[in-house]
């Protein structure tokens, strides 16, 4: 596990130095929340009932930027080749990269949750469900994103291809996370924990597929 923490720690240290996510991605998330609020403000009830969906659509936008940043850390330094040369198992590099993306996304989501409380007047009816669903969905997004991020590099196309590849894969996560938040924020009568379990399954599935496939995909990056 030493290598996993080394990769995750390295990415987080680079973010602490460069502050790209904190100074560019986080403000973007807040701006999107404000714009949604302005667009739907005329009908406060509609805004509240749409909050879970708006929240997770914003998280997907933010995730794409965070994943692109995670990839660019490596491509800017020709470090994918150095990572291959290190002889480290692909799944360990994958796990480290995904953990770093997840940590950054969770920090942004915490600010966004504060934002929906302040801007949309949402209230947490079941905070444990909200936090658990956010953790599971974020792991699913981070694992799928880390794999597809390096896959996009290997395809040798511009990084604008990443949303095209990633969003269809993450559509089920968006649906499940929205439903779980519907319950957690009491915007719809659904069984949030059932959706949360589905999210955990997605996170596990993407983690396993990513762990197995990353080494192969990394060869072409």
């Amino acid at each position: 596990m030493r290598e996993v923490w080394a990769v995750a720690g390295k990415d987080l240290r680079i973010e602490m130095r460069s502050k790209v996510v904190a100074s560019q991605v986080l403000p973007f998330a807040v701006i999107v929340l404000v714009l949604f609020g302005l667009a739907l403000d005329a009908d406060r009830g509609t805004l509240r009932s749409f909050t879970p969906g708006l929240f997770w659509v914003t998280v997907l936008f933010v995730a794409i930027l965070t994943i692109q940043r995670s990839v660019s850390i490596e491509t800017a330094s020709s470090a994918f080749e150095a990572l291959r040369l290190s002889g480290t198992a692909g799944w360990k590099i994958f796990a480290g990269k995904a953990l770093a993306v997840a940590a950054q996304l969770l920090a942004i989501e915490a600010v966004m949750l504060l934002g929906v409380v302040v801007l949309y007047r949402s209230s947490f009816e079941d905070p444990v469900l909200v936090v658990t669903a956010a953790l599971a969905a974020t792991m699913a997004i981070a694992t799928a994103g880390s794999l597809y991020g390096v896959l996009a590099v290997g395809m040798g196309v511009r990084d604008t291809i990443l949303p095209m590849l990633l969003l269809p894969i993450l559509a089920p996560v968006l649906v499940a996370a929205t439903r779980a938040f519907d319950d957690g924020l009491s915007t719809a009568a659904v069984n949030g924990w059932a959706w949360c379990s589905l999210l955990a399954c997605f996170a596990l599935l993407y983690a396993i597929v990513g762990g197995v496939a990353y080494a192969v995909v990394l060869e072409d990056a």
């Binding site: 390295k10 240290r13 680079i14 130095r17 460069s18 850390i73 800017a76 330094s77 020709s78 470090a79 080749e81 150095a82 291959r84 040369l85 290190s86 002889g87």
Partner: peptide, 16 residues
Amino acid sequence: RASVGMLSPDAMLYED
């Protein structure tokens, strides 16, 4: 890969 060390024209170092 674990047994070799390669110095290539790219520095392969993280700038930040």
